[in-house]
Amino acid sequence: MSSEIAPAPSHHPAPEDLLEYATGTGAEWLSLLVACHLTFCERCRREVAMLDEVGAALMDAAGNDDADDAWVGAAADDAAARISERTTADDAGAAGGMPAQLAGTVPRPLRPYLSEPGGRWRFLAPGIQHVPLQTPDDDVQLRLIKFRAGFVIPPHGHEGLEWLLILDGDIGDSHTGTRYGRGDVCCSDVDKEHSQDVSPSEPCIALVANLGPLIPKTMLGRVLAKIVKI
């Protein structure tokens, strides 16, 4: 399990990903991934806050559609009348839903995407368990994956992008030669062949988004791809 003071993430979403998040134009899966990263990353939260300021300034600058005064007055009255009706009802909120074993590891923005409230780990392949997530977008597979400590993902490529957001433990990538830890975003390029290895000391849990099929480069990879059916 993660320690209290985890180091801040050092691999962030691209600036345009944050911009799409802030403007609400990004695909839902990407917004979800960004929101999870933001949970861990103060630096990107600041950046998004700045992008929100930009949005407000644009709204102010463009503003003042010539809404006639009579409407504004009536609408204000109407809204004021509704204030009393809805005081506290709003945020009773979904408190449950997060399996105890995942709370503290899985950021809250993911909660609504667990297909079943209990969302428990299921066997996917030897050394790999997963929790499928409700896929918000047609062309993307989204899941939580837990790799056993020391697991090595054999060399493979991708027809589409693959994104990992590390939630616990860490994983190394042969292509970038980097290790990714809690909160880090790792985006694998199309066609770039790579293998990945989980640190031998602890399992690695990641949010994984696949935008296309995996292209296995080895026999083991082929078997894995078949089992995983990505």
Partner: peptide, 29 residues
């Protein structure tokens, strides 16, 4: 502005915009 944007996303896509929650045990920094 952020509230307006979120309302619009909610209405348009019938989804709730994913956002970090400062009360999340995972929240760091």
């Amino acid at each position: 502005f952020t509230i307006a944007r979120n309302k619009h996303i909610d209405a348009r896509r019938r989804m709730t915009r994913p956002e970090p929650d400062p009360d999340d045990p995972c929240f760091s920094g």
